[in-house]
């Protein structure tokens, strides 16, 4: 279980998150919604250790892991696929897959990645930066599957992709959930995200505006949340 407890966080002198608490229970899918600039990405950055909170705590399976470096959290089963294309552009697909999963045996990592996204198998020697946008995103996402991550944080992984590719990405996300991984989703396709979510949080201006189950959240409130009105 991953949890943020009363977290304040920000960049330099700017505070982005104020008193944010959030729990990702084991084996559940959690959606984090909110308008642009609400601080969703910042929540994920805190959760993966990229950004250390100014106050509050980050907990993993009950242990306090506040201030632990990202690569150490990875070793403890946290996997954060960042916004944009989370790949090493100048490396080949194969090198990317191996670098992404340092503790998985190379043959395993490649086999699992190809199982998840067969197209990657045809492109192993290609430089990652020359893949199409959808393929780059698949390459980035493969990490969630090739490592033994227990908590997967996905930041707008469907952004800027063609509808068909979005379908493929979502079915991959569902497969991850079915495999028992805990997921924390930040998604622009709100309805699709809510459809697979067990819990939902609504973030507004750096504060939690709502926490509950998707059924309790009426669409109007979500819409209002997204256009930035206070909920």
């Amino acid at each position: 279980m991953l949890a943020l407890s009363h977290v304040d966080a920000g960049y330099g002198e700017t505070t982005v998150l104020r008193d944010v608490s959030l729990v990702v229970p084991v084996g559940s899918v959690v959606s984090l919604l909110g308008p642009n600039g609400a601080g969703k990405t910042t929540v994920l950055r805190v959760a993966s250790g990229v950004l250390h909170p100014a106050s509050g705590r980050l907990l993993l399976d009950g242990d306090d892991v506040t201030g632990v470096a990202p690569h150490q959290l990875v070793a403890r089963g946290v996997c954060h696929i960042p916004e944009g294309r989370g790949i090493f552009r100048s490396l080949t697909v194969r090198e990317n897959l191996l670098t992404q999963a340092p503790s998985t045996p190379p043959a395993d990592a490649l086999a699992r990645a190809v199982e998840a996204f067969p197209i990657l198998g045809e492109r192993l020697s290609q430089t990652a930066g020359t893949l199409s946008g959808g393929q780059q995103q698949m390459l980035a996402l493969a990490r969630a599957y090739t490592t033994d991550a227990r908590v997967v944080l996905l930041d707008e992984v469907s952004m800027g992709l063609a509808p068909l590719v979005v379908d493929e990405i979502f079915s991959f996300v569902e497969r991850l959930a079915a495999a028992g991984r805990s997921l924390l989703l930040v998604e622009q396709y709100v309805t699709r995200a809510l459809a697979i979510s067990d819990f939902v949080y609504l973030l507004n201006k750096g504060r939690m505006a709502f926490a509950g189950e998707p059924g309790e959240l009426d669409e109007e409130a979500v819409f209002q949340g997204y256009v930035g009105a206070s909920v």
């Binding site: 470096a69 990202p70 090493f88 990317n96 670098t99």
Partner: peptide
């Protein structure tokens, strides 16, 4: 080598390398 790949990866995006579980 894996370290070699990581060295080139750190040039591309050191934070991503950290997120991928290798200490930059």
């Amino acid at each position: 080598t894996a370290t070699g790949s990581a060295m080139r990866a750190v040039v591309d995006d050191s934070q991503l390398l950290d997120l991928a579980g290798t200490n930059p």
